[in-house]
Nucleic acid binder design. Structure first.
Lengths: 225, 225
DNA sequence: TTTATGGTGATAGTAATACTATCATGTTAG
DNA sequence: CTAACATGATAGTATTACTATCACCATAAA
């Protein structure tokens, strides 16, 4: 069976929908490669145009600026991940097992999803670790939020918050714990590889240890009262 | 009694030591104001020069670029905070009370320290919340780390990790929990004010609730086993 | 007192970034 | 068959991120 996965994105994220043309898909494909390779600060539309043998003006017809493109990529990732969560936790009755699955999906290496042709999820996951916080840590966050640009992130957080409440309906901080899990799944990964003394995983650099840390953190918190 | 607080900074952070001249101190003072007002992305040395009635070239004699200046400001803040922690936890015997003090210092509003003339800690705290992660979320993190630019952050993290171990010598993730506390003290604050649905504090927007959340998280984790 | 040193201000200049605008061309839908 | 539209090519502007040079002034050493 051959399935194609298509995620409908908020129209405010782009000028022209990149999913609906070859050029648009090339922009996504190559921007993921370039940002992954040299980081978001070094990334420019001019370099992207050269990389994909197109023109700068052509890219500006799809995205207002590189910040919006980054928000697009992260929003896509969160939507994809929410789908993964709903798929992988489907039919699981035990909420605790569900929550463990969520932590595993957040904190372990992502494999490329062949159902999404031009997007390399593994590569995108690395970008998310290093760059995703930059999407909202700006003076424009309120306007971007009003435009619903962070909806996929907030939706994922809400889904995880609800699973936490299933585990313990009396737990007082489901949303904050959910956003903590998401952010720490990425920050501990970044620290482990780049500033290892900020973690307890520097020796092995094994992602499973991050999973163990997060499980310990989460389940001791919600099982207490 | 009149005390002056002086923090010795890593020489790799600047070209000329801003503490040792009036111009240098003006750079620090006004850069904090400007970054706080318009955010780091909008901040340029040209605008800073105009604001403080000096010249762009003059500022480049002190700092290589605006990224190094941001690292300088954050490094200063972490050093100052480590001093606060050592001062405020001095003579406290009970490690649990110590750790509560640390969480309070990290997560509640900072008041201006009159012993540091040209630096407004309250303003700087706001900058740290929004901008500090950008200092290390770059492709240059390894080189900057080799140059010891993140030492104050790592030192603070180590101090907190040790207090955690005092509370429970068998706890397996003291460093990761320490970095989690530091980052979440700031992220939950940012979310509360800007993306409130990612937290449980949107209604009251009260920083004491963040303190409660972090205390619950930390003490249920370390008291468990 | 002279001379040397060093910090500062003023000005200029360059390469790259972040766009915007225009026009020609090719393709595709009505 | 033609109108609409996507793309490519080229050009141009304002801003950013620097570097370089020179004059001036204060201070410190000779």
């Amino acid at each position: 069976m051959e399935i194609q996965l298509n995620i409908k994105m908020n129209e405010k994220l782009f000028i022209r929908n990149p999913e609906q043309s070859e050029l648009g898909k090339k922009i996504i494909l190559h921007s993921i490669q370039l940002i992954h390779k040299n980081g978001f600060e070094d990334f420019t539309f001019k370099k992207l145009a050269k990389e994909m043998s197109s023109t700068e003006a052509g890219i500006y017809r799809y995205f207002e600026n590189k910040h919006k493109l980054l928000i697009y990529l992260t929003a896509w990732y969160w939507s994809w991940l929410e789908y993964q969560v709903s798929f992988q936790t489907n039919n699981i009755k035990d909420s605790i097992v569900k929550l463990k699955m969520v932590i595993k999906l957040l904190a372990s290496t992502v494999e490329d999803d062949i159902r999404t042709g031009h997007i390399d999820e593994s590569c995108l996951h690395q970008i998310i670790i290093t760059e995703s916080a930059k999407t909202y840590l700006t003076k424009n966050v309120s306007q971007d939020n009003k435009d619903q640009l962070f909806k996929p992130y907030k939706d994922l957080c809400a889904v995880i918050g609800n699973i936490i409440l299933e585990c313990n309906p009396n737990y007082k901080y489901p949303k904050s714990l959910a956003s903590t899990i998401i952010e720490m799944a990425h920050f501990q990964n970044f620290f482990m590889h780049n500033l290892p003394s900020l973690t307890d995983f520097g020796a092995d650099k094994n992602e499973l240890e991050i999973v163990s840390f997060l499980e310990d953190l989460v389940f001791s918190s919600i099982h207490k009262g």
